[in-house]
């Protein structure tokens, strides 16, 4: 499903350069439930962004579904993201002026699905998240947990093969964290490869595989 070979990434500023990923080798099978842990600046979010085709890498190879992800045009990258990958962010990243249903339906808009059809599908997904009654509410009318559930519904509405979550529980209390993790675990059981970046051990313990990163290198992979 996902194979990385000797992937390197360096960020350059005017004065300095920062070698964030120093030769990552990684293989993730379809349906895996993986967490990536590490201290701040260890390179875990950079790795997730490269996996999500949100960022480029400098050297090495990244294969997604046996396709080499390198030097893609923006249009190709957009199509891949839309087809293959769902994102969940720590700060939810919902669009403020769209209600919950419209936010969830947004990926389908880019698949040219009619408004009526995509709204109907979005309502189904919100129902699955227990938020049907909140469909017409704006994000600022919702709690953090509700927002994250809306974000998860949006991430999976395209039926992606991979779900990438960057600190999905970072802004949530412990009870909501548990609810969100149950949701993510449930989604993984439907066959979606789920990769979570987190610094919370309790969250990582929920996954089957924990990848520890330190200073841009994979230190070890722990199987739960």
């Amino acid at each position: 499903m996902i194979t990385l070979r000797d992937v390197n990434k360096t960020y350059y500023t005017e004065a300095t350069s920062l070698h964030v990923l120093k030769g990552i080798d990684l293989h993730i099978e379809q349906g895996d439930y993986v967490s990536i842990m590490g201290a701040s600046g260890s390179g875990k979010s950079t790795l997730l962004n490269i996996l999500g085709i949100l960022d480029n890498y400098d050297t090495g190879d990244y294969y997604l579904n046996n396709k080499l992800i390198k030097d893609l045009s923006e249009t190709q990258a957009a199509a891949y993201r839309n087809e293959m990958i769902g994102f969940v962010f720590q700060s939810f990243n919902l669009i403020n002026f769209k209600n919950a249903m419209e936010n969830v339906a947004l990926p389908l808009y880019y698949k040219n699905i009619s408004r009526k059809k995509r709204n109907a599908i979005a309502l189904e997904y919100l129902d699955r998240m227990g938020l049907k009654d909140w469909a017409y509410h704006l994000p600022n009318e919702m709690s953090g947990g509700q927002k994250q559930r809306v974000a998860i519904a949006r991430a999976i509405i395209s039926q992606p093969k991979i779900l990438l979550a960057d600190e999905p529980t970072g802004a949530l209390d412990s009870q909501t964290t548990e609810e969100v993790m149950q949701l993510l675990g449930g989604l993984n059981q439907t066959g979606i490869t789920t990769i979570i970046v987190t610094h919370e051990k309790a969250v990582a313990d929920e996954t089957r595989k924990v990848i520890h990163i330190k200073d841009g290198l994979i230190q070890n992979i722990q199987h739960n």
Partner: peptide, 16 residues
């Protein structure tokens, strides 16, 4: 900028 970034992450092409 942020909204455009989110849209692009969700599959918006440059043309869109």
């Amino acid at each position: 900028t942020k909204e455009i970034g989110i849209r692009r992450a969700l599959g918006a092409t440059p043309r869109t």
